[in-house]
Design a protein around this nucleic acid. Structure first.
Lengths: 137, 137
DNA sequence: GCTTGACTTAGAGTTAACTCCAGGTGTTAC
DNA sequence: GTAACACCTGGAGTTAACTCTAAGTCAAGC
């Protein structure tokens, strides 16, 4: 699969795909004789994994280290697990912080809705007053 | 309250507090006659709000626009509510993405744990074999 | 009265993660 | 065979959000 196709399929710019390979986040992709990248099934699974991890904000440096350990084979399983556990913890912590912010946003939105309602009631009251004064009641 | 105290209390570097004020994220803080910042209760509430929002990744530009609307008074309530609703939606979306990543991490960690267990069993088996061969069984 | 330490400013430097550009090559359509 | 197009590279540029530096001011302690 060519780079433009991968780019479309996963919504990752071609420049970013090449960048990931250049910095060693994505292991070297095979090329045709003319030097054009041809992504294998394995490459695609790696792209998907990286997209998922990057989408959650895991740093490239950490992911590159992880991918490097994967390349080194089974002797690095413990080290890889440690990385994932640490990143999982940090991710959970960030999500907890975001949940607090979400709650605060919900609260503030509710308060604003209340205020808008009150404002509308005041306008309505003013219109009623005007109507009544026109009617001479 | 002086800037170093605010910095300590909320874990925000003094440089960052000054930076926030400079770019108009935090409205101008009052000064002593000699020009030293003296954070009021209101300033502190704003600092806390900003810290919360920034901690969840809301962009400074959006927050600055929001704070500007707050300064403009009650006529901007609808606009402020719109900003918060939009940011709430984006935050929820990011959290959903992160939840998927968290699930994948949990899955991968579990798989690694399984692999490590299997490896230990192989080692144990090898030791048993050795023991048995020593015993001549 | 002088040193120390906390504060001030404007502006430059840093970091992560892209993103773009110029110049070049290979393949396909006419 | 040549024009258009997708690909390639190395390297420069961009963006957001800080973070640091240099040079200066002020208040307090000795």
């Amino acid at each position: 699969m060519k780079i433009s196709h991968v780019s479309e399929q996963w919504g990752i710019p071609v420049d970013t795909l090449r960048y990931y390979e250049r910095i060693g986040l994505l292991p070297t992709v095979n090329r045709s004789e003319s030097g054009i990248r041809d992504y294998s099934e394995l490459d695609l699974r790696r792209v998907e994994f990286i997209k998922c991890m990057r989408g959650a904000g895991l740093p490239i440096e950490v992911l590159a280290r992880y991918m490097d350990l994967v390349q080194q084979g089974d002797s690095t399983i413990e080290a890889r697990k440690d990385i994932l556990i640490r990143q999982r913890a940090q991710l959970a912590a960030r999500m907890a912080e975001m949940q607090k912010t979400l709650d605060l946003l919900d609260h503030k939105i509710e308060v604003y809705e209340q205020k808008i309602l009150e404002k509308e009631q005041v306008i309505h009251q003013l219109q009623m007053d005007e109507w009544e004064s026109v009617q001479g009641i």
